[in-house]
Design a protein around this nucleic acid. Structure first.
Lengths: 121, 121
DNA sequence: TGACAACATAGACGTATGTCGAAGCTTCAG
DNA sequence: CTGAAGCTTCGACATACGTCTATGTTGTCA
């Protein structure tokens, strides 16, 4: 189990962190959250994630998404990173390996980016 | 002007990209969007951004947020990165420099992370 | 003008990251 | 029991990144 996964497992509850606009993150929260953003901070990984996310049931075989312009080992490497960040889960079904997005994590990240409420003028 | 800022300026409209779950991103979209996630993918930058975002009017002087455990030049370096990614804007007011979050960009990123609609069972 | 405060830039350095080809592991068809 | 397909792991390499100290720049105030 990756270090990040341990951190995730040790978290109090599902909603990891408050919106970035609500209060400043603690160092620990920032460490955890930054790792998730970092995972999406590579063009190849972002495309892979988007390919999985936009598939039916948010799930896809590696063979369905591997066409992103890099070698197959590199694809595998990036999928591993996404998995370690908690964004994807994988499961082997016969010859193929399927990756699926973790909807709760996606929602949590979206919540982080909630814009600040408009100030009373 | 940074290369990224040029890319941003060349974009068609405000809402950069569809939700990641809607359709797969093109290589170009992924390049642009990954740069934004990457900017938030460092713990120090994420804390700086959060500090600015959680200040009144989503605006803060460097001196108000510089206490994140790294040297002053490093803070300046990270703020520059956030600015180049289009997440912050800066303005000098006398002796101090104020950084402000770009609300539209924050909202656009949040939209990217919209979870997929639940499939009909 | 000079001194100081607030930030930014420059240069250097160690580490992390993205990429590849080669080799290894699983599973299934024959 | 092969052999092949699908994926992962390994090892190597160039580049990018985060950090620091030293130095610039810009503005204020006496």
């Amino acid at each position: 189990m990756s270090k990040l996964q341990e951190m995730v497992a040790a978290l109090p509850a599902e909603p990891c962190c408050p919106a970035l606009t609500e209060r400043e993150l603690t160092a620990e929260e920032a460490e955890l959250t930054a790792a998730m953003f970092k995972a999406l901070g590579d063009p190849v990984r972002l495309r892979l994630f988007s390919k999985v996310a936009s598939h039916p049931d948010s799930e896809a075989c590696v063979c369905d998404i591997a066409d992103v312009g890099v070698s197959q080992p590199t694809v595998s490497h990036h999928l591993k990173k996404l998995k370690e960040a908690g964004l994807l889960a994988s499961e082997r079904r016969g010859t193929w390996v399927y990756y699926r997005v973790e909807p709760a994590v996606l929602a949590a990240m979206g919540r982080l980016l909630t814009p600040a409420p408009a100030k009373a003028a």
